[in-house]
Each structure stands twice: as C-alpha cells, then as structure tokens.
Design a protein around this nucleic acid. Sequence first.
DNA 1: ATGATCTCCTGAGCGC
DNA 2: TGCGCTCAGGAGATCA
Length: 262
Amino acid sequence: MPELPEVYVVQQGLKRLVGSKIDAVTRGEKALRKPSPQNLVELTGLTIADVRRHGKVLFFDFTSGHTLSAHLGMTGKFLFHAPSDPVAPHTHCIMQIGGEQLRFVDPRRFGWLALYGPDEWATDVDHYGVDGLNLTSDGLRPLLKGSRAPLKSFLLDQTKIAGVGNIYACEALWRARLSPRRLACNTPVSKVAPLATAIVDVLNESIAQGGTSFNDYVNSLGEPGKFIANLAVFQQDECPVGHGVQRIVQSGRSTFYCECQK
DNA sequence: ATGATCTCCTGAGCGC
DNA sequence: TGCGCTCAGGAGATCA
C-alpha cells in the first residue's frame, strides 16, 4: 500500500531516467481507476526532463512540456525490465527507454495514468493539500481548526495533507499521543506542533528504511521496504510502551491505537 | 457544505 | 486438496 514514503522511494528509483528518451509506448486495454488515456502513444519520442512527486502522485515532466501523472493506488508498481522478460499479468503500460523497459503493473487497478499536453495544466496538483514532508505546525493549525472530522479521517484527507495514508496516520497519532477519535478542531493547541513533527518524522524515518512493505509494495528494483519493523501500533498487538493495541473502523478503514492516546 | 458511506478491483488468507 | 467466502484499502461518487 504505497503512501508518501513508498512513492518517494519509487521516485528516487525513476530519477535516473531524466534525460532519457521514450522510444515506444504500449498501452494496456483494461481501465485503471481512471481509464488510461488513448494519447499515451504521444509520449513516443519525448525526453524526460524531471520526475517529481507530490503526496502519493508521481509526475514525469517532458522537455516538450507534456506531463504524465501516475498514482500507484493500492498495488501499482513501476518496474524496470529487459525487453525479453515475460510480461506479467496486469501490465498496463510499457515504455521502451533505451535498451530497457519501464512497466506499470497494477493488479487491483486502483492506480491511474494521466497525460497532460504542453498547454494543459496538470490539474492533479491543484486538488491536493500540502505535501506531508513540507508540513509545519503553522500550516497544520488552520487545517485542524477547520475540520470537524475525527483526527484519523482528517489525516487521510489528501486535499488537506497529501501523502499520509492509513499506516502513517495511525503511527503519527500514536507518536503524538492523540486519539484517532478526537475531532480535528478539538486538538489541544499544545499538541499541534507535536503532531506536525510526528507526521514529518514518521514519513522521513520510513523513507530512510525504504518504506513499509506488507504484501504488495516494492521499489522499481523489486525490493521491499523495511520500516515494518518500526511500526508502533499499525497491525500490532502491543505498542512499544506495552499497552494493548485496539482496532476500530473509521471511514471504513482500520485504525490502530492504544490507551495512552488521548 | 461537510463528513460518512459506497464502490471499484484482485489476491491473500482462512475455514470447511 | 481445493473451493468459496471475507477482507484489505485510495479516492471519486454519492448519500445524509
């Protein structure tokens, strides 16, 4: 389940493509979360100028002014392959780049690809809030004040903070000792800075470990992340303090927390 | 207008 | 052994 740290690691792996030219593009037939645009073939002959990330979204910028945005959804992967490698099921896009291929594989099809022309604004960005790594307590304070959602649901709202998903929302709230059930607008003033710090820290620490892997996530070399060993409450029985971890459902998703979160 | 719920999709994990 | 059921969850659409 790729969240900001996992997408960050993928982006780092794709950075070496900067300056490379797309020699050919093959588009899969099945629709992703958004249907893959028919115009993906327009990428042929274009040169990659940059690979960026905002929240959980990747952006390939081309020297022509085109931008390809990509979301990994739940099970999306960008993988480097030799052209002779067998094509795995659920491969939705193959980009021939030099002597190798970059393939987008997504079994559950919750991800998407979108292509913007030179004159189009990549509207994906406008939709999202501040990137999780750039969050400050001054930035967080008004966001909290304006939301009556439970803190856990608030943290999952990509239009407020981009990049935090289920795992890191639970982990950040534990670090800040805040209950996931507390309403965002009722967060004590004294807890705003600790929460902002907890979010940025847990994201950065996970990046340093290559992200968190359960079943699906791997980087562009096919390697899993190791942050799973550092999880305090997410899918744990006991927190590091020794309290039993409770599981509840909020907004249809599992929340893990313990009694020291108030 | 805002937050909650439903929906999409497939593979893993479980029980019989 | 193997089938079939349940569950997971990002985020847009829809509901309340």
